[in-house]
Amino acid sequence: MLIGNRKSSLLTAVFVAGLLPAISASADMKSDMAKGGMAMTGMHMDTASDVKPTTQAYTSDHRYFITLDGMPKSIPEQDYFTLHFSVFDGQHPKQPVSGFSLDVQAGMRHGMKNGFAHGMQSSPKISVSGNTATVSGLMFHMMGTWTLQLTVHDGQHTSVADFELPCCSQ
């Protein structure tokens, strides 16, 4: 489960390696959002103000607890930014862990239950030191709610946590 108002159902085991290519094989969005449901009386995509950022989350298997440190005051639209994360033991959330590697995928769901409607237009750089990870080169090119999927690899397990972030104030 996620801390805050996130639902554990969002964290299903769909987060496999090579996520973005995998999306191509995922069910078409039409199965998630019937075209008729998007008629003119239907949805308009959310805007930045609709979502509060996830600042901490457990991985779906509860193996790790991850915090987003120093959330930017405002995420810039169509510009690069950096985030810092700290990783802790899921059973002992104050106990830092190390010796892991991290992958980050980002995209927007736009109402899709599984996968992303589209990904990010950048390949972020990730550096890990101790229990902290610095992710630079993130870039959100569209307003609305973005999902960052952090995958922790410890050599034996692959654990995934979602962070939702709003774009953008400017």
Partner: peptide, 18 residues
């Protein structure tokens, strides 16, 4: 070719007047 971006589907049906 490639992976069609699902964002396109967010455009709803539009009437002739719209």
């Amino acid at each position: 070719v490639g992976v069609r971006e699902k964002t396109v589907d967010l455009v709803p049906h539009l009437s002739a007047a719209q």
